[in-house]
Computed example of a mutant assay.
Amino acid sequence: MLLIIGCRIYFQPIKEVCNCETKLHGKVALVTGGNSGIGKETARDLARRGARVIIASRDNKKSEAAVNDIIYTTGNANVLYRHLDLAKVESIRQFAEDFKDEDRLDILVNNSGVGGLKNKCNERNIDVIMQINYFGPVLLTNLLLDKLKKSAPS
């Protein structure tokens, strides 16, 4: 059994790529951590399919570069960046408040995450890894839940 699994992983490492062609024109997608890695590629795919994509992350310079790259590679100029630091509760609350300007939210991708940080706590004495990977996305989702419901099917 292990031999079969090993062979499958070795011979088919990237055949399981999403080839979805569903058009997303008129949809709004929010991708946290969309300035690099899986988040950036997710944002790129959503933009390629026509969605208005909002990248939310804490690194302004890296995010602006990601937005420009995604616009260049997809031809979708409706990609933008908004600052969000999931380590800070006030940043999350401010982001959600500012997001009220958006008419809708169809897709929320909670992609941000960290690992390997030393024991460090935020201003509320919460472990930063737990704040960024768990508490932050839960708070963000709850604050945006009404917008998601109003945009149904989202």
Rank of each mutant, 00 (worst) to 15 (best):
L86V: 07
T73H: 12
D127F: 02
Y81K: 03
I70S: 02
V114R: 05
V109A: 06
E64L: 03
D103Y: 06
E64D: 02
V89D: 13
L80W: 01
L86Y: 04
Q94S: 13
N122D: 10
N110M: 04
C121T: 12
L108I: 11
G75T: 11
D127P: 04
E102D: 00
I92H: 03
S91P: 10
N119A: 11
K100R: 10
E123H: 14
K120A: 03
C121S: 13
D98R: 15
Y81Q: 03
K61E: 09
A87M: 15
L117R: 11
G116M: 11
N125P: 00
K100F: 05
R124I: 14
V79Y: 07
N119Q: 14
G113E: 01
A77P: 03
N110V: 00
H83C: 10
C121L: 14
N68D: 02
L84T: 09
N76S: 05
N110G: 09
K100H: 04
L108G: 07
I70G: 01
I126N: 10
I107W: 04
K88L: 04
D85N: 15
K62N: 01
E97A: 15
V114E: 02
N68R: 14
L105S: 09
E97C: 15
L86T: 09
K62W: 06
D106M: 03
A87C: 13
S91E: 05
D127T: 01
V79I: 06
R93K: 13
N122G: 05
L105Q: 09
G116Q: 13
F95M: 12
K120V: 08
